[in-house]
Design a protein around this nucleic acid. Structure first.
Length: 378
RNA sequence: GGGCAGAUGGCAGAGCGGUCAAUUGCAUCAGACUGUAAAUCUGACGACUUCGGUCUUCGGGGGUUCAAAUCCCUCUCUGCCCA
């Protein structure tokens, strides 16, 4: 089962309070969707995840396809049973890997570009290690070099076997370096693939279409209109919107305006702490971001007093908790000095404690925003 | 008392006549990371600098040489072995 109910619409912004219902539970929105690419929040047990106020996770089709394979996960009864985690789940389609293992890797860029590069990616250009055609993408497995093809129908087939509650259409996440011509041609593909995904799906999983269009206003609008007109259960917004936050939010607003209001919107791969209030005010219901988990493994703790790099020597003798205002299990029991030591000693528990805290912190942060929407503050 | 080995930048440890302000690792500092090929990567790390350089460094002192962290003498200290 799947349903989305808007409980309250803000009068001060486009923010909405909602309930996303799935057969594995209800998600109160807006909500962060922590990233569990390999069917795990790196360094955490499923029990930890449950205690971190996490409501829903997103796993990855591409990664789970090459290892351990969707057949195996199906044999275990699907992702939830495999992970022993009774929570709603999403799977990303593999569309992001078209970028991250393609042009992202070639040019050493992330999906958001701070400084524009002199060179661009022109229409017709192909990444070094994969081939993007109208039918799909020929990847090369980074595990064993084996060639593998992923197209819209293939991605859906895999996601059906993985069994997440919400699945995504296969798209091409374009590089921030892509020219307008490239982006336009890519958009045609993504749109075509969206229709194929809808046709291919045989299960009752909720399928979200993905809006692309890069940093080009007209393409974003066009994409939102087109994808929004198709019978998806919800919508993902992918790619990037330009190199500064203001543009990003304006483009996001413009995009969301074109989508059916009653359906849930998921912002793919955006969610630095400072972005969260803005994207929620723009009307996003769910969003995923690797920041809390990824940065934790770099030694970074998000706190009410800002970000702390626990690797730094100043924390060596610090007996204070990571965040004195945080009530998570890590902040109740452990000191900065201990976490510092674990990181210095390369003990995985250091990263694990930080991952737990960061997730709890982000989830609490979003929880507060939900309260603020409810009380009319936002 | 005798013999042997050694002393190098915050630490460990290369170098053994010029290309050495000195490899490398650790530590330190700074930067990057937004649908995770990520427990990663990049840079700085003697002092001053008009960024061209300039000055003081390889236990202390003395010497050889055009040139010494590198060779010689001596002192101090450390480790091991024999009395």
């Amino acid at each position: 089962m799947f349903s989305f109910q808007i409980v309250k619409k803000s009068k001060k912004s486009n923010a909405r309070l909602g309930l996303l219902e799935t057969s594995h539970g209800v998600v109160e929105t807006p909500s962060l969707v922590p990233v569990a690419t390999q069917a795990v929040i790196k360094t955490l047990s499923s029990k930890d995840v449950s205690e971190s106020k996490t409501q829903i996770l997103i796993c990855n089709t591409f990664h789970l396809h090459i290892r351990p394979g969707e057949e195996l996960i199906e044999r275990f009864g699907g992702l939830q049973k495999f992970m022993s985690l009774q929570k709603p789940l999403m799977t990303d389609s593999g569309g992001f890997q078209v970028f991250s293992l393609g042009f992202g890797r070639d040019f050493g860029t992330g999906k958001i570009l701070k400084k524009q590069k002199a060179e661009g990616i022109e229409y017709g250009q192909q990444p070094k290690l994969l081939r993007i055609t109208d039918k799909g993408v020929n990847f090369r497995s980074f595990l064993d070099g084996k060639e593998l093809f992923l197209g819209p129908a293939e991605s859906i087939r895999i996601q059906e076997k993985l069994g997440a509650d919400i699945i995504f259409a296969f798209d091409e996440c374009t590089s921030p370096m892509a020219s307008k011509e490239y982006t336009e041609a890519s958009l045609l593909k993504t749109h075509e693939w969206a229709k194929i995904c809808l046709k291919a799906k045989r299960t009752k999983q909720a399928l979200y279409g993905i809006v692309q269009g890069g940093k080009f206003k007209d393409l974003r609008k066009e994409s939102a209109r087109f994808i929004g007109s198709l019978p998806f259960e919800g919508f993902g917004i992918g790619g990037e919107f330009g190199d500064n936050k203001k543009t990003m939010i304006n483009m996001l607003k413009l995009t969301l305006k074109e989508l059916p209001e009653e359906k849930p919107r998921h912002l793919l791969g955006i969610g630095y702490l400072q972005d969260i209030p803005k994207i929620i005010k723009a009307g996003v219901d769910t969003f995923d971001c690797i920041a809390p988990t990824h940065y934790a493994r770099r030694g970074m703790a998000y706190t009410s007093a800002g970000e702390l790099d626990l690797n730094k020597e100043i924390f060596k003798k610090d007996k204070k908790p990571l965040d004195s205002k945080c009530s998570c299990a890590v902040c109740r029991e452990y000191s900065r000095g201990y976490v510092h030591h674990l990181l210095r000693a390369k003990e995985i528990t250091g990263m694990s404690l930080l991952t737990f805290h960061n997730l709890y912190f982000f989830n609490t942060f979003v929880e507060r925003i939900r309260k603020d929407i409810k009380s009319g503050k936002i």
